[in-house]
Design a protein around this nucleic acid. Structure first.
Lengths: 230, 230
DNA sequence: CGCGAGCTTGACGTTGTTCAACTAGAGTGG
DNA sequence: CCACTCTAGTTGAACAACGTCAAGCTCGCG
């Protein structure tokens, strides 16, 4: 990873939306206590179990957040696209990460000293409110996704994952899939072989078009039906 | 449900621990804006999809929180024992419940006007901080449980559930199981038939003692091994 | 050119669901 | 006080879904 501290937070058009709750003097404080870094695909931003030293704000690229499991079977609980802070609930709970964050593409993040963020939360209740909203949003999304893990069959789960990818993560429709098949499996709670088989079925049924890593959702409506039916 | 408004919050020994962040005048405000109700087993406290009108604090009994699913297959994401607020992230996100809360035993709750709570969060940043901590704690617990849903086999999942019940939910060891087999299934992401079969195996292996709804954990250590191994 | 990582495919076996039948106990009404 | 109904729990058999394993493929890179 490479240090690339650029513009001040005050003029950065990549600043997070939770900053609206901050006064200019507070943003300046953040500017003085941040580091901007560049990560290559596969590089770890923070690791489950490690103490929380900073808050990371993704300013470009794509980051996967997952729970590590013994036998290489991780569970990806979400992806973070710019511009967004990575909200690991462990930051507030026991000061240890409960998630691992890894760059999936060439990614840049701003790291901000955790003590400063916590102080701002303690002193600025509007900012605290924004934080509560963000954490809640993440929980709600998690609810939506996990209810599928146990209840739905593989087709429904892959459909869920594809609908999460577009339009949520990749904004355009054919898009270049920067996640591996294993990542898709870890997002859906299944094996990569099953992902491949389901995707092949979707391709045969002309629900998607897939060539290598170029993926196009052809029939979003049908995907939604499959997602609902399980 | 029956109205049973009792003592003032100021002298109630059942007040939630997040109240430590409140000034006396703020607690008094809450006291004026609350209702205490009694629920019978099976009664709904709030329902997924409904607007958030109040915050519920469980003062006695046991409450299950679940995500509703089409075909009667719910997913219980947690249980709430007194004295604790029920933290539905929807309260902060879009003002609609994303969970259903149902009493499992004879249960009493204090309902507090949502507007007041939100105002206190907005004006008292210590209180907001306590809220963030609570929501985070809930998320972390959820992480621990959901990672098991997709990765573990039925034995590991039931072991998880039993270890969550004791000592977390039922404080004493033999205990009277007030949850149904279906509830255990909904907590473990499986069918009630499978729960019964697994529990029978545990019984045969003398890991638990089970007579009707009287359950004793005989070998907690072995349960932990099964939980880890999956 | 050869190596390795990621992807794909097929055969096979296990796990856990489904379905159906049966039991036990609690509540109800004659 | 006894039939009745209803719900929760239990058991067994059959089947399908999905994971496992093993082999082969593709493509980028040294």
């Amino acid at each position: 990873m490479v240090l690339i501290n650029g513009n001040s937070c005050l003029v950065c058009n990549r600043s997070s939306d939770i900053f609206i709750a901050l006064k200019e003097s507070e943003v300046e404080k953040i500017d003085c206590n941040r580091v901007s870094l560049r990560y290559k695909p596969g590089e770890v931003i923070f690791k489950q179990g490690a103490p929380v030293n900073f808050f990371a704000c993704v300013t470009s690229g794509l980051v996967k957040l997952y729970i590590e499991h013994q036998n290489n079977h991780n569970l990806i609980i979400g992806l973070t696209r710019p511009v967004n802070y990575i909200f690991d609930p462990g930051s507030f709970f026991d000061n240890h990460h409960h998630l691992t964050a890894v760059a999936c593409e060439e990614t840049t993040t701003c790291l901000i000293d955790a003590k400063l963020m916590k102080e701002l939360i303690r002193t600025n209740s509007d900012f605290a409110g924004e934080f509560i909203k963000k954490i809640s949003l993440q929980s709600v999304r998690l609810f939506d996704r996990i209810s599928g893990y146990t209840q739905k069959h593989v087709y429904g789960r892959v459909a869920d994952t594809l609908l999460y990818l577009y339009p949520g993560i990749y904004g355009e429709n054919p898009f270049n899939l920067t996640l591996t098949r294993q990542d898709l499996a870890d997002m859906s709670g299944m094996t990569k072989e099953s992902v491949i088989r389901v995707m092949k079925k979707f391709k045969d049924d002309e629900i998607i078009r897939l060539e290598g890593n170029n993926l196009e959702i052809l029939d979003q409506e049908k995907l939604e039906i499959i997602s609902k039916k399980g």
